[in-house]
């Protein structure tokens, strides 16, 4: 049994105490990581209850989008389908993970208000729940990825361990963004719309549907786009493209700075979060 058997809580004791409490929340959320997983599997199951294909419905619609955009843009830009289709497919699938974790992060705390207002469950459990839910969805969408890599013979070139490292770096980054989105959305109810707009803007500014090699001297647009680095670290190795040291430097630095900032804000607002809801 993991239920609290002893609790000692004291009032406001300054910033250091708040930080310790936030660390305790983090520890407890990892201690009960199985709970986040159970909540996530429940979410997926209940969202697709009664439908024959389950989450594969989303996979199906995503697959159709890949085919539509892939074939259209390939002929518009005169790019061979064998090169462009897998590129777009991986782009849409993995950008979808980022949008999913960040957009759904907005409601992580809001939807859990019933639970949070009568238990002492760790808050961060609900961030991990969002991440896990999107990982479960990704597992379904991997059908598209595997099909593309097989169909166009990328398995020889693909560097899977490096791609997995890319996925981990992506998760480390989108999870802090998800936490921040969750805190901000709990406090300000118009934040989710803003977050959705930002993510929509990002998908068009990032080479998801188009190839980055057309940039030439405007390369800066890529170098300063965090989403490009996030996506490239996953998609590059799978398609046998080189990933530069700059990308890894950006991702690691962003994860460190982002988590520090997000954790400090979390420590500052943790006690108040339940009252925001």
């Amino acid at each position: 049994m993991q239920t609290a058997t002893h609790m000692l809580r004291t009032g406001q004791r300054g910033a250091l105490f708040q930080l310790q409490m936030a660390q305790r929340d983090l520890r407890n959320s990892f201690g009960r990581i199985g709970l986040a997983w159970s909540l996530a599997t429940h979410d997926v199951k209940s969202r697709y209850r009664g439908s024959v294909l389950g989450p594969f419905w989303i996979t199906l619609s995503m697959g159709l989008m890949v085919l539509g955009i892939g074939i259209l843009y390939a002929s518009l830009f005169n790019i061979p389908l064998a090169q462009f289709l897998p590129y777009v497919a991986l782009g849409i699938v993995f950008f979808g993970v980022m949008t999913g974790v960040i957009n759904e992060g907005c409601e992580a705390f809001v939807l859990a208000s019933g639970i949070l207002s009568q238990t002492n469950l760790p808050m961060l459990t609900f961030v991990w729940r969002t991440v896990f839910r999107n990982l479960i969805n990704l597992a379904h969408h991997m059908v598209i990825v595997v099909a593309m890599l097989t169909l166009y013979g990328y398995w020889g070139k693909a560097d899977i361990p490096l791609a997995i490292l890319g996925v981990l770096l992506m998760l480390m980054n989108v999870s802090w963004a998800s936490l921040l989105a969750g805190i901000a959305s709990a406090r300000y109810r118009d934040v989710p719309q803003i977050v959705v707009s930002i993510m929509q803007f990002a998908i068009f500014m990032t080479p998801v549907f188009w190839l980055p090699d057309r940039f030439g001297k405007h390369q800066v647009f890529l170098d300063y786009n965090p989403f490009y680095h996030l996506l490239h670290a996953v998609r590059g190795p799978m398609l046998g493209q080189p990933v530069s040291g700059l990308t890894y430097t950006v991702l690691i630095a962003m994860a460190l700075v982002g988590w520090t900032l997000a954790f400090l804000i979390f420590a500052r607002t943790r006690r108040r979060l339940v009252h925001y809801l």
């Binding site: 002893h6 609790m7 000692l8 809580r9 009032g11 207002s117 002492n120």
Partner: peptide, 14 residues
């Protein structure tokens, strides 16, 4: 229940 934390004083539940 542990959902609200005190502003002053303490709560201890065993």
């Amino acid at each position: 229940s542990g959902a609200y934390e005190p502003d002053e004083g303490t709560i201890e539940v065993q």
